[in-house]
Write a protein that binds this DNA or RNA. Structure first.
Lengths: 194, 194
DNA sequence: CTTTGAACCGAACGACCGGTCAGTTTTCAC
DNA sequence: GTGAAAACTGACCGGTCGTTCGGTTCAAAG
């Protein structure tokens, strides 16, 4: 069951992900993390500058991976609609695959101070902008309903993001089924057209 | 600018709402609240049993009000679709009117211990069930797409809930406009049908 | 065998936490 | 004006927080 000793820095990080997710950043102490890692809390400071750097590392890496996943999923995909479909699929997959990290990312931003906060917010803005832009394109092409693209993009993103909160990998719904339902709702709505 | 001294118990509560929203429950101390209220932190304990009771009071009242709003908005509304439309409108209005409280409700559940947690979760389940049931009805009547009602209900609820995170009362979009956009997306999707 | 550097330990730091309590002030009915 | 209840104070408690630091361990390199 136990993995064969990954290097401690990574082990600390994955324990932090688990605990920040479970109890929240401020409710989880360095001692808690050290305890689980089987070391003294002072040893944490050999690997990380302070508690915030531990949080920042999690948020930064998650946002980096998210942005990279999005970019990768879009290479060689042509057409506004196909691109939006790919983005939705990637967003949902990522949020169902990395539930703990994205939940931390969405709820513990307040734990960051100025510079780190700015850095993460910039990454998030980059991501959101890609979504807004594709909606804008679709509207310009007459494909999508002509409504405020910020609202539409927000509606789509937040809806998909929340899948991280309730998706159960051991449940009876596959990720593909969920992606299908969401894509259908986003494009066609819930009204049955027979 | 300053209101004329509401009773202190209520004043403490509204300061707590502001601070729990701004900094998070665990990052906000009783001293912080007392400071803003212009009293000593020990005085908080004259009005509230402990910190958790303060949080519980916020969550409980918010959930009560939310459930009551929903029920009120449904009296004399007949028909599955009309009822769902009313529910969406009420949900959105509530989440845009009471942003701070619903954000606390959605992010600080972990601050509650067993009994209080159970109590709030029961209220939330009651609310969610009403949404699931209406979706189920619509599917049974052939009005809505035949997909897992839990997923569909979750998609709708979470999408609308997140409006609390970005809606700006001083922005250039009215609540009515936002309700229109969301209702349109939920029923018809984003695809333009000319 | 010695040296070195990475990894970790253990005790301590000041600050602050939520909470308690005996006592003081304020309010207000009589 | 008096008495009692309501509201609030200020000092204090034990505990935990994030962080520091001098010292220890130990494997590998020379």
């Amino acid at each position: 069951m136990k993995e064969i000793a990954p290097d401690m820095k990574q082990k600390i990080k994955s324990i932090a992900i688990q605990l920040f997710y479970q109890k929240g950043y401020h409710a989880c102490s360095i001692s808690n993390i050290a305890e689980r890692a089987g070391i003294q809390k002072s040893s944490i400071y050999y690997h990380y500058l302070n508690k915030e750097e531990l949080l920042y590392g999690i948020l930064k890496d998650t946002m980096d991976d998210l942005n990279q996943s999005l970019d990768e999923s879009l290479v060689n995909v042509k057409g506004t609609e196909a691109r939006l479909i790919a983005m939705i699929r990637t967003h949902l997959n990522f949020h169902m695959d990395r539930q703990k990290e994205v939940i931390i990312s969405d709820s513990e931003l307040r734990g960051l101070t100025s510079d780190n906060l700015r850095s993460v917010l910039r990454m998030r803005d980059d991501y959101d902008r890609k979504m807004r832009d594709i909606i804008r394109e679709g509207i310009a092409e007459g494909l999508f309903i002509n409504r405020d693209p910020r609202v539409v993009a927000n509606a789509i993103i937040t809806m998909c993001t929340q899948s991280s909160l309730w998706y159960n990998p051991r449940g009876n719904l596959s990720k593909e089924e969920i992606i299908d339902i969401y894509t259908k709702i986003i494009f066609e709505g819930i009204r049955d057209r027979k």
